[in-house]
């Protein structure tokens, strides 16, 4: 188990406890966090699960693979250095407490 912390565009904070291996996208969708749309359900096809990872946590994430990198160029909100697809961020002991910020829009 571990927690993902979501900070919505309006500043609202939610902390969700999930089993290891659960993606941040799955956690958000299962708990009604509407700032994540996740149309493709995690196939790296839609970029509607875009998040900005809190700077302090960035080094702890597994490096981005080519499909994620390409997909992020399609994101509806501006791509930044800390942009990631939340469907590719999986809970682990390392990431317990991970903070992500939600972009203004996903579509």
């Amino acid at each position: 188990m571990g927690s993902f912390i979501f900070i919505a565009h309006d500043g609202t904070l939610r902390s969700l406890e999930v089993p290891a291996g659960t993606s941040a996208m799955q956690a958000a969708v299962a708990n009604g966090i509407t700032g994540i749309v996740a149309e493709c359900g995690g196939s790296q096809m839609c970029a509607t699960c875009h998040v900005y990872v809190d700077a302090a946590w960035l080094p702890k994430l597994a490096p981005m693979q080519a499909p994620e990198d390409a997909m992020l160029d399609s994101a509806a909100s501006e791509r930044k250095a800390n942009s990631r697809l939340s469907c590719q961020i999986l809970m682990s002991a390392e990431l317990d407490g991970l903070v992500v910020h939600l972009p203004e829009r996903q579509v």
């Binding site: 009604g32 196939s43 096809m45």
Partner: peptide, 22 residues
Amino acid sequence: QTTGHMGFGGGIHGCVGQMIAR
């Protein structure tokens, strides 16, 4: 809230044409 429906499959073989279909 339909995320997670299986209409386009899922995992690494999840429909690659889903965005054009949408």
